[in-house]
Simulated scan of single mutants.
Amino acid sequence: MVQQRWADAAMTVAFENLPPVSAFPAVPGRRWGPGLWWSATTGRHVAAGSNAMRAQLMVMDRDREVTGLAGRPVRLLWRNPRGQARSWVPQLFARRADGTALLADCPSHPYAGGERARKGADAVAQACADIGWTYRRLPPLDDVLAANLKWLAGYSHPRNAGRPGLAAAVLEAFARPRPLNEGAEAAGDPIEVLPCAFHALWHGQLTADLTTPLHERVLVSPRGSDSPGKTAGAR
C-alpha cells in the first residue's frame, strides 16, 4: 500500500480503478453482506459492503455524469487537534465526467457509525472541499425507488438490448408517452421487447416515474419528454 499527500494523490491516482484498501466487514445476523455489483458504467464489478451501499451504487450507475465507480479505494489519514493519528475509509468513490469526484458513505440510518463516523465524515468533507471534490453521507433510498432500480438493474447488461434493430423499434414505439404494455405490443412480441424496454429505462433512453411501483400500465416516455412518466389509468 502506498501513502501520498492527499492533494497529490487526487491529481494522479485513478481511484476508480483500484481494489478496496480493506475488506468490507461481514456482520453476523445481517440479511445482506459484502458482495460485488456489476456496473453498466464501467463493465466491471464494484465491491459493495451493504444493501444500502448497493442501492446507492444503482443510483450512481444510472447517472450519466458518472464515468467510474469503486468501493473503498482510498484511506485518508490525518491528525486531530491533540496530535493523534486518525483515519477513515469512505465506502464509495464516483468519478465524474469533468474529472472531479464524489466520496461517499452509505449508512443504513442517519446515526450509523456513531461519533467516529461523524468525525470521519467531517474530516473527509474538508479534505474533499480543499481539492474541489465532494463528500456526502447518502441517505437510504425510498423502498419503492430501490425496488424499481433493482428490477431495472437486472436488464442493464448490453445483451438485453436484443437483436439488431430491436432497440430502435422500442424507442420508436415510445416516441410518445404510452403505457408500457401498449408500447411493448406495438414493437413486437412483448416477451422479446420488454427486456429491451427495461434496458432502455435503465440507461435513460426512456423514462418512467420510479417513485411508484413499476407495472404493465406505467406510463413510459421518451427521454426529454415534457410528460413525466406516471401511472396510466385503466382503460
Score class of each variant (00 low, 15 high):
A70Q: 04
A187T: 11
L210Q: 11
T41G: 08
K230H: 11
D143L: 14
T100S: 09
V66N: 01
A47N: 02
P34E: 06
A153H: 13
L145K: 05
P140F: 09
Y155W: 08
T42Y: 01
W38T: 09
D61G: 09
S227R: 14
R163H: 01
R54S: 13
S108I: 03
R223G: 12
A48K: 04
H157W: 04
S87E: 13
Q126H: 05
P140S: 10
P34N: 03
D98A: 10
C106I: 02
A101D: 02
R54N: 12
R30M: 01
L214F: 07
P228A: 09
L219G: 14
M53W: 00
T212C: 07
A47R: 05
P140C: 10
Q84W: 02
P139H: 09
A40R: 03
V193G: 06
L206H: 06
A168T: 07
E16I: 08
V218C: 08
V66C: 00
F93H: 07
A184I: 01
L57E: 11
A208G: 08
G49F: 00
A121Y: 05
T12A: 13
R137N: 04
R44L: 00
R64S: 14
L92C: 07
A173M: 01
V144D: 08
T41V: 14
A52H: 09
R116I: 10
E185K: 10
A52S: 13
G114I: 09
L180D: 02
N160W: 13
D105P: 00
P28K: 00
P222K: 07
L166D: 08
L145V: 03
A168E: 15
D226R: 15
L103I: 06
P81Y: 03
Q3T: 07
P19F: 10
K230N: 11
H45K: 03
G188K: 10
R72S: 10
R118Y: 12
P19S: 14
R79N: 13
G224H: 09
D142V: 12
A7S: 11
T207R: 12
D142F: 12
V59I: 15
M11G: 07
E115I: 14
R5Y: 04
S156C: 08
A94T: 07
L18C: 07
G83E: 05
E65M: 00
V66G: 02
G162F: 01
L57D: 11
H109A: 07
R137E: 15
H157N: 12
T207S: 10
R79G: 00
A26S: 11
A26W: 00
D130S: 15
T134R: 15
R54Y: 01
A10E: 00
E172K: 12
F15K: 03
S50I: 02
A200W: 05
